[in-house]
Each structure stands twice: as C-alpha cells, then as structure tokens.
C-alpha cells in the first residue's frame, strides 16, 4: 500500500519513474508549493516494496506491506 503526503512533494518524479509496479503518475492538481505530486493510479498493483520511500528526497511517499498493517 502506498501513502503519499502531497504537501511534502517537490515533483521530481523519481518515484513515478522507478516504481517497479508502475503504480504512480503525476496528478493534475497542484500542492501548496505549486508542484504536481504523484497519485496512485493502480494502487492494487503496489507490492509494498518501499522503493519509492527510499528514493524520495522529500520523505513524501512510502510503501508498506498490507500484511504488516493488518
């Protein structure tokens, strides 16, 4: 499951490009700083690998295994 904090995002697009499951894309909305944050277009494909979380320079996104949440 992927969690996004849109207001922390600076729109670099690294999470979108390197997500192995292709879960993310840029949203059309702006955040408070005027960047386009990512949004989960295929949330069901997320494996919880947290690669987005470790790449994100702004600590704005992370993935977790649903198993660990439940």
């Amino acid at each position: 499951m992927v969690t996004i904090n849109p207001d922390m995002c600076k729109g670099c697009g690294i999470c979108i490009r390197f997500c192995p499951a292709g879960v993310l894309e840029f949203s059309d909305e702006f955040n408070s700083k005027g960047y386009h944050p990512p949004r989960a277009v295929r949330p069901e494909a997320c494996t919880g690998c947290d690669l987005c979380g470790i790449y994100c320079p702004d600590f704005a996104i992370f993935g977790i295994l649903l198993k660990t949440v439940a």
Binding site: G11, C56, F62
Partner: peptide
C-alpha cells in the same frame, strides 16, 4: 507517519534542497 521520521527533525521540513537534488535520498 513516514517510517523514517523517528530520526528526522520533521519540524524543520520541508528541507531547503531543490527538486531533483539527491541529498534527500
């Protein structure tokens, strides 16, 4: 709620680094 935020001073965020800078990574 980010799992790494225990070791970050989140009150100082967002940081000064530019969009696309690798320092945050």
């Amino acid at each position: 709620n980010n799992p790494v935020s225990d070791l970050l001073r989140t009150d100082r965020m967002p940081h000064i680094w530019c969009s696309g800078c690798g320092l945050g990574t």
